[in-house]
Nucleic acid binder design. Sequence first.
DNA 1: CGCGATTTTGACGGTCCTCAACTTTTGTGG
DNA 2: CCACAAAAGTTGAGGACCGTCAAAATCGCG
Lengths: 271, 271
Amino acid sequence: MTTSLRSNPTDLPPIPSACLPRPLDAVAAIRDVANDRFSMRSAVGIRRYEPRQMIFEQSQPCRHIFEIIEGTVKLTIALPDGRRQILAVLGPGDLLGLPLGQQHNTSAIAISDVRVKQIARSVFDASLLLQSRAAAQLQKLFLKMQDMIVSLGRRSATERIASYILETAKSGNSDAATPNQPTWSFTLALSQTDLADHLGLTLETVSRELTKLKNHKIIRMSGRNHLEVLDPSGLSEFADNVSHPQTAPNCGTTNEAPEPVFVGRRRRAAR
Amino acid sequence: MTTSLRSNPTDLPPIPSACLPRPLDAVAAIRDVANDRFSMRSAVGIRRYEPRQMIFEQSQPCRHIFEIIEGTVKLTIALPDGRRQILAVLGPGDLLGLPLGQQHNTSAIAISDVRVKQIARSVFDASLLLQSRAAAQLQKLFLKMQDMIVSLGRRSATERIASYILETAKSGNSDAATPNQPTWSFTLALSQTDLADHLGLTLETVSRELTKLKNHKIIRMSGRNHLEVLDPSGLSEFADNVSHPQTAPNCGTTNEAPEPVFVGRRRRAAR
DNA sequence: CGCGATTTTGACGGTCCTCAACTTTTGTGG
DNA sequence: CCACAAAAGTTGAGGACCGTCAAAATCGCG
């Protein structure tokens, strides 16, 4: 969903640098833009993390911002009793630890070997360029989280698994999707345990759902987490009704609805 | 859903909108700031909606931005088969219809009688002031959506209902929380049906959970949707482990974790 | 090869959904 | 103001889905 992958994050729609609750000072902003290249070189360091290492932790003050250079990172929130939810999975180019409040509102944990650029908060605060990228990232995540809410709130385990695979396959992580052989092949970033924490399921359910897809000859798995989609159309049947904004039916055919329109009652879900 | 007929779409000044992402232009921005007050007066109109009326619809092009002056609006996403999810409930001062993509990614529907200020997209795009407010709103929603994801993914029906009531009561909507009489009293913005769509439940489950709380003398309800919290501490026991960032335990006690720290395994949820 | 981490599989049960009928509240028109 | 209809909420019975517990199997890595 929201598949339009823009290579350059800065060309996303306007929501501007005012990503931070700070007084708007356009003149200072211009100066900062000029300094950006310099500042970014000065107060920046590279850090490495191994799988399972924590980059920052929920409710710590956020003193640094990170840019992922290489590897994959998960953002998680943990409830006191140990239940966990993975909010997002980020990769190269993504920014980590955006200062939305005083403290980090999630933990960030390395999934693979990770290299990040560590940027001091002060540098970030002074850089319009970085803040613009942060705003873009925020938007991207925002849209993903919207879809996630719908999934978690309204879709079955089967649908969640299937559409996760579908999206992962489509989002360019797939190795080779040759036109005449429509089988995607890629490596899952998440273990099944993490997948469960991402999709709001248990690891047992994830395993069973994957097995089901294997038995239906929809997917094939080899190695630890290599996955091959044998039957994309079958897969989207399991994923069922994903509403892609771009693919949505009546794009731009109707008006802004200046006229008040009554909305029908909710039909009940039919699983 | 998309069936609604519109009588006369003529009374609305159709504003050709530059719906395209623009590069950040600080100089133009300064000029725009100067013009803000003027522009906001020129291309702005007031609109009214009754309960259940749609303000804009999922996958329509977003040509206007709205500011709620009075009333309550829900943002919803509907799956093709009729399942619905309410993503957010907005009130006075909130902005509606932020252009995150080319099209609206949710529908906006009036819950109560609503008055909104309608702002042309072109005006919005030219106004740094508005965009700054939009960014702030985006952040607020972002944090709420994070909590929502955790709730939907990892918490039981009881917990969701209880913490919804708790948060609504705390968030100032409560009429009178006198210090010596710690009973909150307020009016639910959402019907039970909407509550279900917000919390990822069915209306029957919502009803049963509320009844349960009534039987436990935790809450009392009168009228259609007037709610009184009789036993706040009992309520938070049902809500269980809500981790409020502000109330979180180790605030700033630990470091940014430049030192790699291994994360323990997930403990299984204990309901 | 052996050990820990991860996944698989089975049995069982609880939570919550489904279906359905009924009750209460709200709104409308005579 | 009452009657009636529509909307909203309540309650019960039953069962599906998915979580829980437990144990075996497999993978990966030294």
